[in-house]
Simulated assay, not measured.
Amino acid sequence: MGHLYGYARVSSTDQSLDVQHAALTLAGCSIIRSEKKSGTTTEGRPELQTLIDFAHQGDTIVVTRIDRLARSIADLAGIVQVLEAKGVALKATEQPIDTSSAAGRAFLQMLGVFAEFETAIRRERQMEGIAKAKEAGVYKGRPPSIDAAKVLELKADGLGPSAIAKQLSIGRASVYRVLQSDVGQTVE
């Protein structure tokens, strides 16, 4: 029989991992990897990748809920595919998920769809809130990180986009955007 390895994740640094750690320990996990990262992508989650790389055939990766692992069906499917190819099972302590059975795999896929739907709904609500705040004049967005006036000044001094980008330590694409957004300004 293989080992049980736990994975715990919260989205922000002010959230606690204690409840997940306790549940994973109670489930019998010998090693628990955890991180405070967004679940909307698997990119930039080194603890998850380490766990996936480390697990061997016959081992099981345990999470408390499937949304701790992935928020999109594509990411979830990718993780499950990699684990299955290695002969590693996936279980959740709070949901009837166990990829070592057909019923567990089916339930996992259904939950993945709902997790992705929840993320999309949250994003829509956030965009609606931002739109209302903009209408009310409350939300202005983040301040520009590029000094457009300085870009235009350097262009007027005869510098090309590459030289401007280098001098201001910004990307050339940013220079082009500023130059193209300036009315009457052409990019050479």
Rank of each mutant, 00 (worst) to 15 (best):
G2A: 13
H3G: 06
H3W: 10
Y7V: 15
A8M: 12
V10P: 02
S11H: 01
T13K: 02
T13D: 03
Q15N: 03
Q15K: 01
V19E: 04
V19Y: 11
Q20S: 11
A23K: 15
L26E: 07
A27C: 14
G28F: 14
C29E: 03
I31S: 13
I31L: 13
I31R: 15
G39L: 05
G39C: 07
G39Q: 07
T42G: 12
T42C: 11
R45L: 06
R45I: 07
P46C: 00
Q49C: 05
T50D: 11
T50M: 07
T50R: 15
L51M: 12
I52T: 13
D53Y: 08
D53R: 09
F54I: 09
A55N: 12
G58M: 07
D59V: 11
R65T: 14
I66Y: 06
L69H: 14
I73N: 12
A77N: 15
G78V: 14
I79C: 14
E84P: 12
K86F: 09
G87C: 11
G87T: 07
V88D: 13
V88L: 15
L90E: 14
L90A: 15
K91F: 04
T93M: 11
Q95W: 07
Q95F: 09
P96S: 10
P96M: 08
T99R: 14
T99V: 02
A102P: 15
Q109L: 15
Q109D: 12
M110S: 10
M110W: 10
M110G: 09
M110C: 12
G112K: 08
V113K: 06
E116Y: 13
E116Q: 15
R123A: 04
R123L: 07
R123H: 05
E124D: 14
R125V: 01
R125C: 03
M127N: 09
E128Q: 07
E128R: 05
G129V: 05
G129T: 03
I130C: 04
I130G: 02
I130D: 08
A131G: 03
A133P: 01
E135H: 02
E135C: 03
A136R: 00
G137M: 04
V138P: 01
Y139S: 06
K140A: 05
G141C: 06
R142K: 10
P143V: 02
P143N: 06
I146K: 02
D147A: 03
A148V: 07
V151A: 00
L152G: 06
L154D: 02
L154R: 05
A156W: 04
A156Q: 11
G158H: 12
G158R: 07
S162F: 00
S162L: 11
S162A: 08
A163H: 03
A163V: 04
I164N: 00
A165F: 02
K166R: 11
S169V: 01
S169D: 07
I170K: 00
G171A: 04
A173G: 05
V175M: 03
V175K: 02
V175G: 00
Y176D: 02
Y176A: 01
R177W: 00
V178P: 03
D182I: 00
V183I: 10
G184N: 12
Q185I: 05
Q185E: 10
Q185L: 06
E188N: 08
E188I: 06
